[in-house]
Every structure is written in structure tokens, then in C-alpha cells.
């Protein structure tokens, strides 16, 4: 009797452990499946165009010529615009929330900033089409064009839709990510070092510039890369405002196309197998880029988190 119940006791445990083990394995399985589909379905394109697919500058489904360069260009440039806007903003927010804001205000303000992250991408897109794009067309682009029109970046007709609008909307979307991570990083700066700096007669800004920011440097870099990774893969909002034309133009006013947005646009209406596989191949490139960035960002953030309190780094 006793032996039997012991056996049941043990079997229950083994079964339970087995279930959780299988569930954990399913995550590995899902990622492998994603990788397999990306590799298998892009075969056609990579055998036809070779690695040159990534460098080809023409994307022409009608004539069956596919090069991903305009898409990679659009993806990278729109994300870099977003980062250029969002990084200073997020740093300002993180500094304000960790160093300057009165304590009662910190909770509500960071709640509001995080609310930006909860808004669905397609709602950003809708707002982008009917509010942001008209604003960019009527206010931002004419002003930039007349003030900085000597640069090729700001030349051309103000469509509203295009690279600039995509960059702005991405900036809004990644600000909560970057500011939340930077805030964590800045909170990890040892209080004693800041107090030492203040005791030496430094102003608050000097403390921030010479102690807080250097201490959090690699963590902030990690936050920026994490934000960049999000921007690169963002689909709906970008698709709705970027204008969807795969071309490489130095002007930020021009229509453009990103990898994610072309997949959203053309995938369900692909002409033939080659077109479909070219889209998957572009997706494969996107997957590899975001994967590398993500791993890099994680390593950087981890490194900061691992530094014990009160220990200085060079």
C-alpha cells in the first residue's frame, strides 16, 4: 500500500516535470519552425539572384526582377530618423523622471509614457494618415525645405507621406521603450557617487553629465539598440504613412518602402512563386538584422545590470 502510493507520488512528479519540459521545448520548436519557413520559402530567390539579392537596387514584380536594397535602405533610414529623434527625447524623459521630477509626479508621468507603448500599431497608423501626415505636409516639410533646402535631404515636393513621416511615427512608438530601459539604467547609478559629486560643489547637470550618464553609458546604448530593433520590425504604422514605393532617394520627403511594409502590402497579392519567395527572402534579411541587434542590446543591458552597487568601472 505504502509502496504503491510512493510510486504514484513519483509518477505524478515525473509526468509534471515532463509536461513543463515539453512546453519549454515548444518555444525552441517555434523559433526553429520560423527559421525553417524563412529559409525554405526563400530558396527560389536566393538560388536565382544569389547573395546579390541583398544588393540589387530594382524591385520590379511585373518583370520578375527583385533586389532588396531599396527596402533595406528604407528600413534602415526610417529607423535611424526615429532613433535620432527618440534617443534625445527619451534621455530627457529618463533624466527628468529619475533626477529632477518631484516624487509625486514620477509615477503618473512614467505611466503616461508607458501608455504610448500600449497603443496598437494600426491605431498609430490611422492617426498618422489623418493627423500626422497632413501636419508634416503643411508645416514640417515647407519649413524644413525653406530653411535647410540647400541639403539634398530636404529637397522635393512636400507629399506628407514618405520617409520623414515614417521616421516621426516610429520615433513616437519607440520612445516608451528607450525611455523605460534608460530609466532603469539610470536608477541603478549608485546614490553615493551622485552625492559625492554634489558635495564637491557640482551642479545637478554636472552630476548628471559626469557621473550619471557615464555610469549608464552602455545601458543607454543597449536601450537605443533595443529601440532600433523595434523600429526596424515595425509594420503597420509605417506601411500606412511611408507611401510604399521601393526607391532610393537622398530626400527624406520622398516616398519609400521598408521590408516589413512591403511584405504587408504585397504578400497576400503576390504575382507568382518568385515574387512570394522574394518577399520571404526580404523577411529573412529583416529577421537576421533584428536578431543580431536584439542579442547585442541584451548583452549590453545585462552587463550594466550585473555591475554591483558601489563598484566603479573605469
Amino acid at each position: 500500500m505504502r509502496k504503491k502510493s510512493y510510486k504514484a507520488w513519483l509518477e505524478g512528479d515525473i509526468a509534471f516535470r515532463g509536461f513543463t519540459y515539453l512546453a519549454a521545448l515548444s518555444l525552441v520548436g517555434v523559433v526553429l519552425a520560423i527559421l525553417w519557413v524563412l529559409v525554405e520559402k526563400s530558396q527560389l530567390t536566393f538560388t536565382k539572384f544569389g547573395p546579390g539579392f541583398a544588393l540589387g537596387s530594382r524591385w520590379d514584380p511585373v518583370h520578375g526582377v527583385f533586389g532588396a536594397l531599396p527596402l533595406v535602405y528604407g528600413t534602415v533610414v526610417s529607423s535611424l530618423i526615429a532613433l535620432a529623434i527618440a534617443l534625445p527625447l527619451s534621455l530627457g524623459i529618463a533624466i527628468y523622471l529619475t533626477q529632477l521630477a518631484p516624487h509625486w509626479l514620477r509615477g503618473p508621468v512614467s505611466f503616461l509614457v508607458e501608455l504610448l507603448a500600449a497603443i496598437p500599431s494600426v491605431v498609430y497608423g490611422l492617426w498618422g494618415v489623418f493627423v500626422l501626415v497632413p501636419w508634416v505636409r503643411s508645416s514640417v516639410e515647407p519649413v524644413l525645405g525653406s530653411a535647410l533646402g540647400f541639403l539634398p535631404l530636404f529637397r522635393g515636393a512636400p507629399y506628407g507621406f514618405g520617409m520623414l513621416a515614417a521616421g516621426i511615427i516610429l520615433a513616437i512608438m519607440i520612445t516608451p521603450t528607450i525611455s523605460a530601459v534608460s530609466r532603469e539604467v539610470l536608477l541603478a547609478v549608485p546614490r553615493s557617487q551622485q552625492e559625492a559629486m554634489l558635495a564637491l560643489g557640482a551642479t545637478r547637470w554636472e552630476t548628471i553629465r559626469m557621473v550619471v550618464l557615464p555610469y549608464g553609458r552602455s545601458g543607454i546604448l543597449g536601450a537605443a539598440i533595443l529601440g532600433l530593433g523595434r523600429a526596424l520590425g515595425e509594420t503597420m504604422a509605417v506601411t500606412m504613412v511611408i507611401g510604399n514605393r521601393p526607391q532610393i532617394s537622398p530626400s527624406l520627403f520622398e516616398l519609400a518602402q521598408t521590408i516589413a511594409s512591403i511584405i504587408a502590402n504585397e504578400f497576400s497579392e503576390a504575382f507568382n512563386d518568385l515574387h512570394l519567395s522574394a518577399l520571404v527572402a526580404a523577411g529573412f534579411i529583416l529577421f537576421v538584422i533584428t536578431l543580431l541587434l536584439h542579442v547585442m542590446a541584451r548583452l549590453l543591458v545585462w552587463r550594466v545590470a550585473r555591475v554591483p552597487q558601489g563598484v566603479t568601472r573605469e
Binding site: 518555444l27 523559433v31 520560423i34 526596424l232 509594420t235 541587434l293
Partner: peptide, 8 residues
């Protein structure tokens, strides 16, 4: 997985 774009 949290970093994989949802379109992928």
C-alpha cells in the same frame, strides 16, 4: 522571440 517582428 520577443524581438522577432510580428510580420515575420
Amino acid at each position: 522571440m520577443t524581438g522577432i517582428p510580428s510580420i515575420i
